[in-house]
Design a protein around this nucleic acid. Structure first.
Lengths: 193, 193
DNA sequence: GTTCTTTAATGACATATGTCATCGTTTCAG
DNA sequence: CTGAAACGATGACATATGTCATTAAAGAAC
């Protein structure tokens, strides 16, 4: 269960962990299971945990005034899922986070964060996490404002084929910023080539 | 010149600076002036500096196959401008960065970064910078996939009125992900209410 | 297995945005 | 001051995407 988390920490920090730190990390991240469609966060709540996905698939989405869902993030094994703004600033979230498959998580509550950030390796890891997330969301933003819906879908297929396999089309569409009918037509267009 | 930088560092870290650190910071960030339309980074180059804007206005943009520009970031006084991915990973940038007004910068070269990251206050500050950038670009992404062009422009007017004042419409349009003609029509629509 | 729900495809039509061309105004270098 | 370039507004039309309705297939619950 914890191997994947330690592997992740190791990959993103060059500081080794002491055995005391390893023990405290075990206590700080606690396992939690979610069934498909169970939620980790409801809009309006403060996000109380940073979750590491050991197994399964999650998504983070907002709902607009017309009731349309907009998927801001998809995440599978070895990804983090959290509303970082809400978690860090303790402000109500505008997002929902839910499991799209039966999912095994390791949860770090906000309360434990301060202590564990004292560990250089953990601090290093979270810095890399924020850097990577910043770089990834900047790329996605550039795609969103500069590519056609077709190109965005082709990029997704190329770089994150698992997402396309594991989430239904209406969620993929809401991730790309288009309607499910449009995605369906893009796909039929691609299959005719 | 350096007051704004030190104020920024102070705001985003609760660790005080030693007088030795203050001296080294002075040496590490060097002043640079740019005239309007001079560039700090060309696509294809590796981004060699993180720049703090003391006075002026800059933009970061990509150019697609059809020659259309897409503005990924606008920045004015007290903002940072850098292609963080290129700067950290030393990979060629897909972006251009140019001055849109005569601009006064403080430049931190990649070479000096490693040393200066040893200072807790600086590390803290850069972490906050990445966190803030991540949160901001996630918000903007959510806007891009969930709001109409009109709403995106209204948000920009509300939260960053200086951008609208200091950059011409074709740049604002490329920041919003629309064409300048569309922005012009949105504006005339708003002014008739 | 049977039934209910979810997912996906598709046609007809509506709307938003892009494209291209034109024109007047503003800005700015010489 | 003057001419060129940049900027902004607008009309006519093209294209991409959204909306709504219908149908069929796949999957989940009982």
């Amino acid at each position: 269960m914890y191997e994947a988390l330690f592997a992740y920490i190791k990959r993103y920090s060059n500081v080794p962990l002491t055995s005391n730190e390893i023990e405290i990390i075990h206590k700080s991240w606690v396992p939690q299971k979610l069934k498909k469609r169970e939620t980790l966060l409801h809009r309006g709540e403060i996000c109380k945990q940073t979750a590491f996905i050991v197994k399964g698939a999650m998504r983070q989405y907002s709902v607009d005034d017309s009731g349309n869902e907009h998927t801001i993030q998809l995440a599978i094994e070895n990804w983090w899922i959290v509303d970082r703004e809400s978690y860090l600033m303790r402000t109500p979230s505008v997002y929902n986070i839910e499991a799209w498959e039966d999912t095994q998580l390791l949860i770090l509550k906000r309360k434990e964060l301060e202590d564990i950030l004292e560990f250089p390796a953990i601090k290093e890891m979270f810095w890399h996490m924020d850097q990577n997330n910043y770089i990834a969301s900047q790329k996605r933003l550039n795609d969103a404002i500069s590519l056609t819906a077709l190109n965005r879908y082709e990029n997704l297929l190329k770089y994150y084929p698992d997402f396309v396999k594991r989430f239904p089309q209406h969620i993929i569409a809401s991730y790309l910023g288009i309607k499910k009918e449009t995605l369906s037509r893009i796909r039929s267009q691609l299959s005719q080539q």
